[in-house]
Amino acid sequence: MASSSLSNASLAQIEALLVPNAQSSGQSSEFIPQLYYALHQVKKDPNSSVNSLETATSSIRHRLKQCKSHIAESEECRALLSKTPEEWEAALRQRQKDLAVKQQVFARLERQIRDLGDH
C-alpha cells in the first residue's frame, strides 16, 4: 500500500484499495494491465486450469468488494460521497453564510453592550 496524501481516513482507505500505487499511476488503474496480463496467460495456455481468468481476477474483485463494504459501513464516507463536489461547494457556502450571520449577531450584541456601558 502506498502512502496516501488524503487526510480523511475513509477516503484514504478507498484510495488505498483501488489505487494502491496512486503516486506513480497515470490516468488508468492497474486493473487493466492486470487483466491484460491475465488474458495473455489464458491465451498462452487456454486449457490450463491455473490460468483461469476467474482466478486471475479474483484479487481485483476482492478489492472491489472490500471497497464497497468499506463505503457501505462508513457513515462518514457515505455522507461525504453522497453529494457532488459542486453540491458540497454550495453547501459550504451556505454554512459560511450562516457562520457570518452568527458573527454579525455577536458583533451587534457586543456593540449594544458597549453602548449600554458608555451610557
Partner: peptide
C-alpha cells in the same frame, strides 16, 4: 467503466479538501 471509476477516484482529493473545510466550519 475503468475510466469512469478512476475519474471518480480523481475527485477524492477534492472530497478530502471539502471534508477538511467542512470539519473546520
Amino acid at each position: 467503466a475503468d475510466k469512469q471509476l478512476y475519474k471518480s477516484l480523481e475527485c477524492l482529493p477534492k472530497y478530502d479538501e471539502i471534508d477538511t473545510r467542512a470539519k473546520t466550519l
